[in-house]
């Protein structure tokens, strides 16, 4: 029974990782860039929820508004970052864009520290009154239900956009071959912006869910979950959307089970150990496709 309980805890943590990992993997799939500032988008999203629910109280309506507003704001921030920081570097060597991404990440973190309404000190995130449900000896909290349900809903929505809409088709085409897609009349710049916006919106949702489960917000809060989600994206196969979801859930469960049955001291070691093993054994990740290098 304890095993099932721990798997459930892992699922709830993993669903947040999966949402963040989706942002990494989509951007990578299209522009081949690891967007290290993605974890900090999570922080901005969480602060959005913090301000809205702090001002208007916690109720199903305000949480819905928080999601919509935070996701919208972060989508815009995602586009701004892409246009100002990454677009000028699109034809530069990949390592330049990567270093820029690390720079943007530090800018957002330290910017948050300096801004008077955010500041360096942790703040309490407003949450619902605690409520638990019991099923056959397994305890599930309202927050866990909300986290898992909203994550799955958003992932289903993303799946729909990617596979069944016109813009999704364009995204897939761009990811497959950017030049060919361009020749077919797809507006590449628009698709890239849309991808960043979509990724950032998911990151913002993940931020609110993360802060609801672990009710504290501070400018550095996105760093560790961002890093773990990156591991999840690589584990599932970077560039692959189902891979990111699978990777996120697997990593969350692996981490929780390590804490629960081996030792809590090893949890982070296991998470990053998985990254090393996967890179050695199957560098493309579980669901990643083998990309042949064309000369």
């Amino acid at each position: 029974m304890e095993f099932v309980q721990q798997v459930l805890n892992g699922l709830s943590l993993g669903s947040v990782y999966a949402l963040i990992a989706l942002g990494y993997t989509m951007v990578y799939g299209i522009v081949k860039l690891i967007n290290f500032a993605h974890g900090d988008i999570l922080m901005i999203g969480a602060f959005g929820g913090f301000f809205i629910m702090g001002a208007f109280g916690v109720s199903p309506t305000t949480i819905l508004i928080s999601f919509i507003v935070s996701m919208g704001v972060c989508a815009i921030i995602g586009i701004i970052i892409e246009k100002t920081c990454y677009a000028p570097l699109r034809n530069a060597p990949r390592i330049n864009a990567l270093i820029t991404a690390i720079g943007v990440s530090y800018l957002l973190e330290n910017g948050g520290r300096v801004l008077p309404f955010m500041g360096p000190n942790p703040k309490q995130f407003p949450t619902f009154k605690i409520q638990n449900y019991n099923f056959l000896g397994i305890n599930i909290s309202q927050t866990q239900i909300m986290t898992i349900a909203i994550s799955i809903l958003l992932m289903a929505l993303l799946n729909y956009i990617i596979n069944y809409t016109k813009i999704g088709k364009a995204m897939r085409a761009t990811s497959f071959d950017m030049n060919a897609a361009c020749l077919m009349g797809i507006n590449i710049n628009r698709i890239i912006s849309f991808t960043f916006a979509l990724g950032a919106a998911l990151g913002a949702a993940a931020g609110i869910l993360f802060a609801s489960s672990y009710p504290q917000v501070e400018p550095y809060m996105g760093f560790m979950p961002g890093l773990k989600a990156f591991v999840a994206a690589v584990l599932g196969g970077i560039g692959s959307i189902p891979g990111a979801m699978l990777g996120g859930f697997l990593l969350g469960i692996a981490e929780t089970l390590t804490k629960g049955f081996i030792s809590s001291k090893l949890a982070d070691g296991v998470a990053f150990g998985i990254l090393i093993i996967i890179l050695v054994v199957k560098p493309t990740g579980i669901l990643g496709k083998n990309e042949r290098e064309k000369v």
Partner: peptide, 20 residues
């Protein structure tokens, strides 16, 4: 007893063990 590291935010696994 159960332990964690500075900066950890998720204690569900340890707490589930303690609850038992």
């Amino acid at each position: 007893e159960e332990s964690y590291a500075t900066g950890d935010k998720d204690f569900n696994a340890q707490l589930t063990k303690l609850k038992a």
